[in-house]
Amino acid sequence: MTTPSAPSPSGTGITVRGLTKTFGSFTAVDDLSFEVAPGRVTGFLGPNGAGKTTTLRMLLGLVRPTAGEALIGGRRYADLPAPMSTVGAALEATGFHPGRSGRNHLRVLAASHGIPDRRVDELLDLVGIPAAARKKAGGYSMGMRQRLGLAAALLGDPDVLLLDEPANGLDPEGIRWMRGFMRHLAQEQGKTVLVSSHLLGEVEQTVEDVVIIANGRMARQGTIDELRGEPAVLVRVGDPAALARVLQEAGLEVQPEDGGLRVSGADAARVGEAAHAAGHPVHELRPLRTDLERLFLELTESPEHRNRNLATGTEAA
């Protein structure tokens, strides 16, 4: 994604270039540019109100950009010949007619692309709600809605999936299911996935690349390994100076931190074993936040990045 790798001919990538959206005097998205590489899972992260949903909506032609462009496979969404067969999107605010069954909701969408009912039933099986989907959507739980939204996104067997906060409102079991499902889509079916979230932990184990925005602007992008930086642990012992020498001799980078030692490039097991071998009783040993986690916390907690949705009420999220 950061590397300007040319999209592989088989996959479909996403290009966002100079994308800007203002609502009155409020700038929801500000000169945003990034690429989503084909066949990879990219996390689209940022605090609530950072402009993630607005960006996704511009990608899908639901919101008109004030400036710039958002392309899928080099085309605007509205110019795709059979959009649902290229891009599947599960957006947060998608609603269902309370009196229509989930299955019929899918059948309506299927009709627009000439997709047979058989495919609808296949997908209901896949997302695990074949029986419930025959009931009216009015009584659906959040988890049902998320699964139904996902089934809708997959109807046309698209190359690209845009998922907006797919874990929102799911119970832990649902979140686990969703993670596994995303991995399955990316790894076994080679789909390009762009998944937004305001919680790093929700997508961290699933995504390969990360785009982080705040206040509508790019904050950081790269592969997740790049952004994570080296793993580090904090260790506290009675004689930190002595342990520091031992660890440095073992080739580790050690810095004093918070009365203990910050050891980069090693996990807790290795540091603990080294301390034990050198005869230092360990008082505390824990992994430190990765660079990515620290960056993300900074973004979400700093007052200038507080949820702008709450302040203005003009942007969708």
Partner: peptide
């Protein structure tokens, strides 16, 4: 009213 317009426009963006 039922926010189905999003799904509708995704299926029929023109």
């Amino acid at each position: 009213r039922h926010k189905t317009i999003t799904a509708t426009l995704l299926a029929a963006p023109r």
